[in-house]
Design a protein around this nucleic acid. Structure first.
Length: 314
DNA sequence: AACCAGGTCAACCGCGATTTC
DNA sequence: CGAAATCGCGGTTGACCTGGT
């Protein structure tokens, strides 16, 4: 094992590509295509292995490659997708035309390092949570829930299997992305999680029995919710919303539920944008938190139409 | 000017998946 | 059907760059 057969040839050059080599490869590929990469070096007159040629073409030379800084939209998309699929760089890259998995991976690793270096500690957030004056003990405070926006997370999410049988999630945490249009987004491994369409007053509060017929799959990459659905929350008929609709997506904000350790890696960046609408699941306290602040997830038995507990200003 | 540390990014490596023979 | 070849992916490396001292 080890070396690919294509790399066993002698006199195979390694390291950075010279402009001359690039030119040879471009010339060959544009005129002949690349049916079999192992044959490309010889035919193109390159002393490289086919694998190296393939990599050079895909990551650097192909004409539709897009170079330069990532736009805020691309960055946002990467963050969202990564929160759902993890280090599936090729999958993420497939949503960003012209970007390569390698480029995104490098970008993410640089970005991650920065986040880790200046991330807040989880204990500081927990301390704030514990000292906050309002909690689930003081429920049913009306903070002006605006039903025209999706200003909460309904935990009655169904996982719809490819065979179209609806089943509530069990066991492992479910990956989900929730389109802010209120429809459906994809989960992982081909599953997707459904959500009711636009919520309104008449639909609220909603139990899982009231969830209407699942709408068709409607994946959009803008203004999405994404993240992990903690196992405990799968059994709650809960709601989360913020003061004056902070969590609503009408302003293009996002809401992401993350495992705490994952959340910690990037919470600071989000709060620095004054967009603290990021949720994570605190395993220790069994609570959802928002940007370091407390959010109370009401169970169905305690939940009122506009009830929420949202103790501190954002 | 020289050195160092940290960041970036192109390229390589190893391995599982897929295709071909 | 199994082995070999090839592809494609994610992790890692190391050369180069840049800014600070």
């Amino acid at each position: 094992m080890g070396q690919h057969s294509c790399c066993n040839q002698q006199k195979v050059k390694r390291g950075l590509w010279s402009p001359e080599e690039d030119e040879k490869l471009i010339k060959f590929i544009t005129t002949h295509g690349y049916g079999c990469w192992s044959e490309v070096p010889e035919k193109a007159g390159l002393q490289r292995c086919g694998k190296s040629c393939r990599l050079r073409w895909i990551n650097y030379l192909r004409p539709d490659i897009r170079r330069g800084k990532f736009t805020p939209e691309e960055e946002k998309l990467i963050i969202n997708l990564h929160s759902v699929v993890g280090n599936k760089w090729a999958h993420i890259a497939s949503h960003l035309p012209g970007r390569t998995d390698n480029e995104i991976k490098n970008y993410w690793n640089s970005w991650i390092k920065k986040k880790i270096n200046r991330k807040p500690t989880s204990t500081s957030m927990i301390t704030r949570l514990n000292t906050t004056s309002t909690s689930i003990d003081q429920p049913h405070t009306d903070y002006g829930y605006n039903p025209t926006h999706l200003s909460f997370l309904n935990q009655d999410l169904c996982i719809k299997q490819p065979n179209q049988e609806t089943a509530f999630s069990s066991s492992l945490s479910s990956l989900f992305m929730l389109d802010t249009s209120g429809s459906v987004l994809e989960g992982h491994n081909g599953d997707f999680i459904s959500h009711t369409e636009y919520f309104n007053d008449s639909m609220w509060p909603m139990s899982k029995h009231q969830i209407p017929e699942l709408p068709s799959l409607n994946f959009t990459t803008n203004n999405m919710y994404s993240g992990y659905l903690p196992p405990l929350m799968e059994n709650l008929e809960g709601m989360v919303h913020g003061q004056n609709g902070e969590l609503n997506n009408g302003e293009g904000r996002e809401c992401v539920i993350q495992k705490q350790h994952e959340f910690n890696e990037w919470v600071e960046d989000q709060t620095s944008q004054q967009c603290p609408s990021y949720l994570f699941w605190d395993d220790e306290h069994q609570e959802v938190q928002l940007g370091g602040e407390e959010i109370v997830v009401h169970s169905a038995s305690t939940m009122g139409p506009t009830s929420s507990s949202y103790p501190t200003s954002l």
